[in-house]
């Protein structure tokens, strides 16, 4: 009897929906997880066993890829350090700018807020395009061969994020709290820093994660603006590595020596090993922010 009480009673249609949802979710999960597992397996496979394609159970296991990375540890750790630096600084800047932009847009007493919101929205639909952006960033701001190349273009601010934070402020923080703070004598900076930001942890975490992922995975900035190998981040390094392998593969000079060199160097597996290493920090951080992230995803989108 007691057992029956604890059971959730479901209607027939509800149960069907439940099963369908379960199947869809499991399929999606498989789509996400299988490539990851494959990537991991490949990084531990020997180069010979990869000649005929990727396999979940390779003919031969090997640590060559990781040994290769260990040999290259100076370069890789430098790239790793730079990636962390760019991600931390970039995410902090991005969060600060996004929330500082969103705060006045959420204030009812800020008259031009609708005009500014429209301009912001406009940038979500149209932008200058790659060539124009490249010229502006390199000629006007001179970011080539500097770390700014990773920080400024692309991930720093997005209209979408500003809108999300503004909507969160509007929908989840009662306006009377802002008014109470004003009457208590707080200026806008105090209201922003002591009330709005601490009260919007979920959306800040979400935006922060998106931004951090953007910075962490950003390889294009390095490709456009960086030639100095000392300024390579891990993703740029990975990209260059892939390009080099591709070059070896496609070149006409397929004589014996190159073939040998190609065989002895862990190419495919090294690619995956670098990808695995690049993935580790995200995998480590994600469980800690998961709850706030889900809250932020759900509430940020409420109210257009």
């Amino acid at each position: 009897m007691a057992k029956a009480k604890n059971k959730i009673v479901m209607m027939k249609g509800e149960r069907t929906f439940h099963y369908i949802a379960l199947v869809v979710m499991i399929s999606l999960m498989i789509f996400c997880v299988v490539p990851l597992i494959l990537m991991c397996v490949v990084s531990f496979s020997s180069e010979n066993s990869l000649l005929h394609g990727y396999r979940f159970i390779p003919d031969e296991w090997s640590l060559d890829a990781y040994a290769f990375m260990w040999a290259k540890r100076a370069t890789i750790s430098r790239a790793y350090g730079l990636t962390i630096l760019v991600t931390v600084v970039g995410t902090t800047m991005s969060l600060l700018l996004t929330s500082l932009f969103a705060y006045p847009l959420s204030r009812k007493d800020f008259k031009p807020r609708n005009t500014i919101a429209f301009i912001l929205f406009f940038t979500m639909l149209f932008n200058g395009g790659m060539t124009a952006s490249y010229i502006v960033w390199s000629r006007l701001f001179h970011i080539k061969e500097t770390l700014w190349a990773y920080l400024l273009p692309g991930s720093l601010m997005s209209g979408m994020n500003v809108m999300l934070v503004r909507n969160y402020f509007n929908a989840n923080i009662p306006y009377s709290i802002v008014e109470a703070a004003r009457i208590d004598g707080a200026n806008d900076w105090t209201i922003y820093s002591k009330i709005m930001v601490p009260l919007s942890k979920p959306i800040m975490t979400t935006i922060g994660l998106f931004s951090a992922l953007g910075y962490w995975n950003n390889w294009s900035a390095g490709l456009y603006y960086i030639n100095n190998p000392k300024l390579y981040t891990i993703q740029v390094y990975l990209k260059k590595l892939m390009d080099s392998i591709q070059f070896l593969r496609t070149t006409d000079l397929q004589d014996e020596a190159i073939l040998l060199a190609q065989r002895s160097l862990p190419t495919e597996s090294a690619r995956m090993a670098v990808a695995i290493i690049a993935l580790i920090p995200i995998l480590l951080v994600y469980p800690f922010i998961q709850q706030e992230l889900i809250k932020g995803m759900v509430v940020g989108g409420v109210k257009g």
């Binding site: 709290i177 109470a180 002591k194 009330i195």
Partner: peptide, 8 residues
């Protein structure tokens, strides 16, 4: 305020 407006 009617709705208290405390800082949560």
């Amino acid at each position: 305020f009617q709705n208290y407006a405390l800082y949560p």
